[in-house]
Design a protein around this nucleic acid. Structure first.
Length: 852
RNA sequence: GCCGGUGUGGCGGAAUUGGUAGACGCGCGCGAUUCAAAAUCGCGUUCCUUCGGGAGUGCGGGUUCGAUUCCCGCCGCCGGUACCA
């Protein structure tokens, strides 16, 4: 069977250019102090979310973001920036460990294989990464600094007065006890109810639970002693400091909601002389509190429940404890609860109200106790109706509101000294009243919990910590990295005992101390990788001061990573964790900005050809390798950028790939044609004559448009403009070489292989064409004059409807245009019989004649 | 439920501060080239039409000389979150 001739020989030249870039280190960028570093150039740091090198290799979603950053990288380089554009591997993770359990092969081996595969795939797409800066989170020289940063967290506390992290040694100097100090570390041990997954053999962070559950794993709540990171101290800063970031509003909102600030008050009730504090966001409704609810796990439940209720209470507590979170929320829409037999005194009116326990109140939020105001809270209302508890209205809704249970702002009624006040006035007044009597105070609560940081897996960074006599202590920085030992058997223990505990030789230290056997979660490595890229090989520091200050510093910029592109799935995980670590490092003086990522862009998901999410089971997965094989890397890159707006979700189309492939072939044929023997030779149509007006206009309009579109990340419209330009040039009988080369220059960031290849071929044939690589040249400047038209088309509307189009000199003034428009016969035929009321002239666009 | 996003031809998608709706690409149709096909090139392609025009950007209103764009009220789809007091 005859081989179908390729429209252009991408399979021959793409790999050659890739090799050349690699051999010449075309995209390596020196650091301050290095040879070849040009301090006069401004810096630009473009970052991709680095991939987890899975066994299945790259999918089409990866090149979407990576091509976008690649275009920016190449474009910024051409515009005189020192561009940092690195790539690496987020390589700790469960699949490699599962593989080890199955085969007995060390996870590092499997990880290495996967990385080699990923690297090869990325290189075949021609990305302009500085491969000298490649990092791997599992490499000892990386683990070393992850552990080092952990020790910074361990050895710091949050000073509430200065609102920043400070060295723990300050507390030692102030004579705090060991226990107090340990309780204030940013990395600390606590026994709390955690998310334990028996089949994964590890605990999970709140942020991770949903993901694993959706993959079919069970997750249950269980009290365990674990390492935690005090992210809650940063809750307010993590909200406030979002303001100056150039992030999508949606992502900011997601983070804010996740952190979940609510403003309210704590109010002290008394039960049998025992003080019980509740948290409420509506202290103004205190007069409407008709019962109180404690969380089933509330420590006071035992003491206050009456003898007659004890059994029922105990039963209910047992049922709740056995329920998973899922059952307690999604499945249990119905309210349940038990009366304790106890009564609480409402401080504002001394009313005795019944105290219940119910699982709609969570021990982990607020104080684990609420005052229930069934008239103005939907949940309390439902509960009160079910159990027949009194409902007292204390807020009058504004006119027109008919809600059965009004939860908005209104006017206080039946509320003693608050009656008649607006909700916000009443809040202020009651808070002041409570505060005066020492019965309560204004409080802010956050949904955010401290970050559960330990895992029971093998394939993660060990904690640089050991235990002796029940106390933990940090191992010396000089002992880092602390690497996990080889194991015969990587199987989880099946209970919360970490896998590493099997390595008894490793665990037991000479002085009788025992190593911590938990490991860090996969997030640890990604919390600071963007810093390591700045100074990859540094063996003295995680990042040098000079490198940090140049790449991450302000230098007249907003500071931090200038552009960060990745998927939305990390909105509340990686992006929140990394911001937290960065702020700690900032407080301790290691980095120069409070935020790591100045501008964030989320690329939209690429769906399958059927419009469904790509998945193996649906059989709609597109393999990028196959696309490269059939159409070349440039086609894949170009297609993914042409599909639609970067941030939008969009379906794949193989026909669409063919479309951009055809476009590239047209560009190719602008410069090349086949001779009698069927070989590619320089096109006869090319000329070294000066481009005429038409050619200049086409090319310079393209420079302008592509430039604007790259700046706004509107790659799809930039490509469409280049298509227009190519079509225009193709139509010419004589094609000016200089015009073609300029088109190749603006196309280069998008389709680097083809554009370089053609430029090289043209350079051989024409003296006027430089043989310098396009990648190293300056971005062309468009000439405004070439864009100028002598005549422009003006639309003539009558009563807002287009009736005619006329050509007028560009310089024509309003009156002239109006005059010409009124002379239009077509327009007149529509005006006939009516009087002209008004004529609107929009210069350069249209004339609208209003007549009736 | 709440929060966010989104809705434009047969399809992916374009449209400066409100100013020619449908750029560009796909698909489709017709033609050229060819022994034939592929590839390529050219033309056409929102719908309706009595060929004068008329309608049209999820639906219903409003502001305006003029609305895909601004305002009010609905509806659909996608994502996040879910008893957070």
């Amino acid at each position: 069977m005859a081989q179908r001739r390729k429209q252009f020989p991408f399979d021959e030249f793409e790999s050659q250019w890739q090799k050349r870039w690699e051999d010449n280190k075309t995209f390596s960028v020196p650091n301050p102090g290095d040879e070849g570093f040009d301090a006069d150039k401004p810096k630009y740091y473009v970052l991709d979310m680095f991939p987890y090198p899975s066994g299945s290799g790259l999918h089409v979603g990866h090149p979407e973001g990576y091509t976008a950053t690649d275009i920016i990288t190449r474009y910024k380089r051409m515009n005189g920036f020192n561009v940092l554009h690195p790539m690496g591997w987020d390589a700790f993770g469960l699949p490699a460990e599962q593989h080890a359990i199955k085969t007995g092969e060390h996870p590092a081996v499997n990880t290495e294989n996967n990385i080699n595969n990923f690297r090869g795939q990325l290189k075949r797409l021609g990305f302009a990464y500085d491969w000298d800066r490649e990092i791997n989170t599992t490499a000892p020289d990386y683990v070393r600094w992850t552990q080092w940063i952990f020790l910074k967290l361990y050895n710091s506390y949050y000073n509430e007065e200065t609102q920043k992290a400070q060295p723990i040694s300050e507390l030692e100097e102030q004579g705090f006890s060991r226990e107090d100090i340990d309780n204030r570390r940013l990395a600390f041990v606590a026994e709390t109810p955690v998310n334990w997954s028996p089949d994964l053999g590890t605990v999970l962070a709140n942020e991770e639970v949903e993901e694993w559950r959706s993959k079919g794993h069970t997750v249950e709540r269980r009290p365990l002693r674990q390492w935690m990171l005090r992210i809650t101290s940063y809750a307010q800063r993590l909200i406030d400091e979002l303001d100056d970031l150039d992030w999508p509003d949606g992502i900011k909102m997601l983070q804010k909601n996740w952190i979940g600030r609510s403003d309210g008050a704590e109010v002290a009730f008394t039960i049998d002389g025992e003080k019980v504090t509740v948290f409420t966001t509506r202290p103004d409704t205190l007069f409407g509190a008709t019962y109180m609810v404690l969380a089933p796990e509330h420590p006071l439940v035992d003491r206050i429940s009456s003898a007659g209720q004890k059994d029922e209470i105990a039963n209910y507590q047992k049922t709740c404890a056995a329920k998973s979170d899922l059952e307690r929320t999604e499945l249990a829409k119905d309210k349940s609860g038990v009366f304790t037999g106890g009564f609480a005194i409402n401080p504002v009116n001394q009313e005795k109200i019944p105290v219940w326990i119910a699982d709609y109140v969570m021990m982990s939020y607020g104080t684990g106790a609420i005052m229930a105001v069934p008239a103005h809270d939907a949940r309390d209302n439902e509960f009160a109706e079910k159990f027949g508890i009194e409902i007292i209205q204390v807020v009058e809704a504004p006119e027109g509101n008919e809600d059965k249970c009004f939860t908005g702002n209104g006017t206080a009624i039946n509320s003693g000294f608050l009656s008649g006040l607006s909700t916000s006035e009443a809040k202020d007044k009651i808070c002041a009243w409570l505060q005066e009597r020492d019965l309560g105070k204004e409080t802010i609560n956050y949904k955010l919990r401290d970050w559960l940081f330990s895992r029971q897996r093998y394939w993660g960074e060990p904690f640089p910590v050991a235990w002796k006599d029940g106390n933990h202590y940090a191992i010396g920085e000089d002992e880092l990295p602390l690497l996990a030992p080889m194991l015969e058997d990587y199987k989880p223990t099946g209970n919360p005992e970490p896998t590493l505990s099997k390595a008894t030789d490793w665990v037991e230290l000479e002085d009788g101390a025992l190593r911590e056997t938990n490991t860090m979660p996969q997030w640890a490595g990604s919390c600071w990788y963007y810093l390591r890229y700045c100074d990859t090989g540094n063996t003295d520091r995680f990042i040098s001061e000079e490198a940090e200050s140049y790449w991450m510093g302000k230098n007249g910029n907003p500071g931090g990573v200038d552009l960060y592109i990745g998927g939305t799935e990390h909105a509340v995980l990686h992006l929140l964790y990394a911001r937290f670590w960065h702020k700690v490092l900032f407080d301790l003086g290691y980095v120069s900005t409070p935020e790591p990522f100045h501008k964030l862009v989320n690329q939209g998901l690429i769906m399958g050809e059927d419009g469904q999410k790509m998945s193996k089971s649906r059989g709609n997965v597109v393999n990028p390798d196959e696309v490269v094989e059939l159409y070349g890397a440039d086609s894949l890159r170009l297609y993914e950028m042409f599909m639609g707006p970067l941030e939008q979700v969009k379906p794949w189309s193989m026909k669409g790939v063919e479309g951009v492939f055809r476009f590239l072939a047209r560009v190719w044929r602008l410069a090349m044609e086949t001779n009698q023997e069927g070989e590619w030779v320089i096109s006869e149509k090319l000329t070294e004559d000066e481009p005429d007006k038409k050619a200049n206009k086409a090319v310079h309009a393209t420079i302008k448009k592509v430039e604007e579109d790259i700046e706004s990340l509107s790659f799809n419209t930039a490509i469409s403009q280049m298509m227009v330009c190519t079509n225009e040039l193709t139509k010419l009988d004589q094609v000016p070489v200089s015009s073609v080369v300029t088109l190749l220059q603006v196309l280069n960031p998008f389709a680097p292989h083809l554009s370089e290849e053609l430029n090289a071929k043209l350079a051989e044939a024409f003296d006027s064409v430089s043989s310098d690589e396009l990648a190293n040249r300056a971005w062309p400047e468009f000439v405004e004059e070439y864009l100028h038209e002598d005549e422009i088309e003006i639309v003539i509307q009558v009563n807002g409807k287009v009736r005619d189009k006329i050509s007028v000199p560009t310089e024509a003034n309003k009156d002239e245009v109006e005059k010409l428009a009124l002379e239009s016969e077509k327009a007149q035929s529509f005006i006939e019989g009516n009087t002209i009321r008004k004529v609107i002239v929009v210069p350069g666009r249209l004339v609208n004649i209003v007549a009736n």
